[in-house]
Design a protein around this nucleic acid. Structure first.
Lengths: 338, 338
DNA sequence: CTGAAAGCGCTAACAT
DNA sequence: ATGTTAGCGCTTTCAG
C-alpha cells in the first residue's frame, strides 16, 4: 500500500508538479525556492505553500548538475576510530548542518595514496573538503588546494588555508612544567613520522629544551595507537629519563597501561605528558596531564573558512592558529629522588 | 598556473571527451565504464586506457540523475561524539568503501524530528540509510522503511530490517555474575526513555531478577552522558543497593568518577556494571565490567544487509542478532559484609 | 556490439 | 517579475 495516497508507485514530486499545480513556469518555482526575493512575494508564498503540501524536496543531484554546487563537504580523517577526531567531526557536523550542507565522512586509513585517490574520485561530488591531519606531501597538498577549496587542520603548508592548534606553544608549557618539577632528562616519544603534528611537536620540544640548556632526546617512531604504547613504555624506561612528552594521548594512555603492568609508579617514578586531551584523558589512571586544544572549535572554524571561501567572501584569513594550554592532572609530579 | 597542462580553466573531462578521443559513441563509453561485458573487449580496453590517461572520474550526480542510484549511504547517529558509535562508524565506513559507496554521516542530535526531517530531505541523495539508535516512533520508522531501504541498528521494529546486539542475554549474564557474588539488592540505572535499548535492557534485567526471585529496581532516567553520572551515582547510593547495572558505559564511567569523588570504593562498597564496552571502559578507574558487543561488526553487517537489499539479492535476512558477553573487569566484586 | 536520441530534475541565460 | 529555451553529464531505450 502506498502511503502517499495515490495508487501509482510514488513518483517523486518535482518542480514541474509544483509549477503545474500553481500555474507558473518551472523556472519561477526554481527561483522562488532557490533565492526568494527574485520573485513576487505573493506567488512565492503560493509556491512555497504548494511545495510544502506536496511534500517536495529538491533533488540535490539535479541541482548540482546545473549549478555545479553540491552543497556537500567532505571531511577526511586518517582514522575514524581515533577519538581525537570525534570532537572535530562534531564541530564540522554542526557548522555544516546549520549552513544546510551535507557531510561526507572519509577515512583515509593513514594512507596518502588513498587520500589522494578518494579526493580525486569525489571532487565532482563535493564543493570542498576539510582535511584533518592530511598525509599528502606538501607539493601535492598545494596542488590539491589549487584545484578545489580545502582547509587543512593541523597541517601548515604555504598556500593552503589551515587551522592549526598551536601545540608548539603548549609543548613549551609542558616542558616548562616538567623542568619546574625538577626534571632534567626528558624524552619525546614520537608518533608516525608522516604526521606533520609529530614533527612540529618534536621541533617545539627541542627548542624548549635548548632554551633550558637541556638535551632533547627522541625515541620512536611509534604508531599513534594504544597498543603501541607497550613498546613505547619499555623504550622510555630504557632511556632512564624521568619524564616523557608523548606525541598524543592515545599513545600516552597506552604507555600508562604498560607502566602499570610493569609496576612503575606514575608520577612517582616517571612523569607522562600527552597531547590533545582526548576523551578518556581525564579518567584514565592516573588522569593524564596533557595539552588541551579547542578541537571542536577547530572543526567549526575550518568549515566557516571553507564556506566563506565558497561564497566568495573576501576577508577570509588564510590560516588560523588556535591556542592550547597545558591541562595538569595527575600523571606528572616532582622528579624522583635518587 | 594550471597543472593539467592546458591553458583553459581545467574543464572536467566527460565521457564525450573519451568518446571523441576513442572514436566511439558516448553511449559506448558509458557501457564500457559502467558494466564491462556489454561491449567488445578490445574497444573496452581502449576506452579504459583513454579514460585513465585523461584522468577521468565519472560525475556521480549526473549518473545518479538518470540511474536513480547515488551510491551513497547515510549513516545516522544520535550523537557523533558518543564513543559507542566510533566502532560502528568504522564498520560501516570500511564496508561501504569496499563496495565503492560514499558515506554521509548525519548527526540527529537525539531528536526524532530532526532525524525524520533529514531523512526526508536527503532521501533523493542516498540509496539507503543505516539508522543507529533511531529515535523515531515505531510507526514512523516502519513507514520510513517502506519508503526507502534502511537497516536499523539496536532497534527492533516489526518490518524493519535490523541488526541488534543481544544485550538482554548479556544483562542476564551480568545479573548472574552479580548474584553469584552475593548481591541481592541490584538497581538498574536507566538511560533516556526514548532509547529502545534502554527499555530492552530494563526488561531483561527485570526478567533475570525475577528468575532469582529478587526484586528489580530502577532509577532514572538519566541522560546518557558522563556528566549525568554525578546525579546517577548519588541516586544509586541513596537506594542502598550493593550493585548497579547501568544503561551504558558513558553513564557508568560518570558514575565511577562521582563515586571516587565521594570516596566510595568500587567494588568494595558497591559494584558497577556498564554496557557496550566503549573506548575507555578498559582503562578507566577501576576498569569497568561491562557488556562487550561486536559493535564494529554490527556496522559491517548493517551495510552488508543494506547493499544486498539494494542489489535485489533474495536470501537477505530481515534481522540479525549479534551475541554479547560479559567482560569482567575490576568494577565488580563480592557483596560488602555488613 | 554499437550508435542515435531522449530525458533525468534542475538552473541559468535570454527574452518578454 | 515571469516565461522560454537550452543544456549540465550521464544512462537508457530503441534501432541498426
Amino acid at each position: 500500500m502506498d502511503h502517499q495516497g495515490s495508487s501509482t508507485p510514488a513518483r517523486r514530486v518535482t518542480i514541474n508538479d509544483i509549477a503545474a499545480a500553481t500555474g507558473v513556469a518551472p523556472s519561477t518555482v526554481s527561483r522562488a525556492l532557490s533565492r526568494p526575493g527574485r520573485v513576487n512575494p505573493t506567488t512565492a508564498a503560493r509556491i512555497e505553500a504548494v511545495a510544502r503540501s506536496l511534500n517536495y524536496a529538491p533533488n540535490r543531484q539535479a541541482r548540482a548538475l546545473t549549478s555545479g554546487r553540491t552543497e556537500t563537504i567532505a571531511v577526511l580523517v586518517s582514522d575514524v576510530t581515533n577519538p581525537f577526531y570525534f570532537g572535530m567531526i562534531r564541530g564540522t557536523a554542526h557548522q555544516l548542518r546549520s549552513a544546510g550542507y551535507a557531510q561526507l565522512l572519509i577515512d583515509t586509513e593513514d594512507s596518502a595514496e588513498l587520500e589522494n585517490h578518494l579526493l580525486h574520485k569525489m571532487r565532482q561530488s563535493i564543493d570542498g573538503a576539510v582535511l584533518a591531519a592530511s598525509r599528502l606531501p606538501e607539493q601535492l597538498l598545494a596542488t590539491v588546494a589549487a584545484e578545489m577549496p580545502i582547509v587543512a587542520v593541523n597541517r601548515n603548508v604555504p598556500g593552503v588555508p589551515s587551522v592549526v592548534i598551536d601545540s608548539p606553544a603548549g609543548i613549551g608549557q609542558a616542558t616548562e612544567h616538567l623542568v619546574s618539577l625538577g626534571h632534567r632528562d626528558i624524552v619525546y616519544v614520537s608518533g608516525p613520522p608522516i604526521s606533520w603534528a609529530n614533527e612540529a611537536r618534536w621541533r617545539a620540544f627541542q627548542h624548549s629544551m635548548s632554551h633550558h640548556a637541556l638535551r632533547a632526546r627522541k625515541i620512536g617512531p611509534f604508531a599513534a595507537s594504544r597498543t603501541s604504547g607497550s613498546a613505547a613504555a619499555d623504550a622510555v624506561l630504557n632511556t632512564g629519563a624521568t619524564a616523557c612528552i608523548v606525541f598524543n594521548d592515545l599513545l600516552a594512555i597506552g604507555i600508562l597501561s604498560r607502566l602499570r603492568e610493569r609496576d612503575v609508579a606514575v608520577p612517582d617514578q616517571i612523569s607522562v605528558v600527552g597531547c590533545d586531551d582526548i576523551f578518556g584523558a581525564d579518567f584514565c589512571h592516573p588522569p593524564l596531564t596533557t595539552l588541551n586544544g579547542p578541537i571542536e572549535r577547530a572543526g567549526r572554524v575550518a568549515v566557516t573558512m571553507l564556506l566563506s571561501r565558497l561564497n566568495g567572501e573576501a576577508g577570509t584569513r588564510q590560516s588560523v592558529v588556535l591556542p592550547t594550554h597545558l591541562q595538569v592532572r595527575e600523571s606528572t609530579g616532582p622528579v624522583p629522588r635518587r
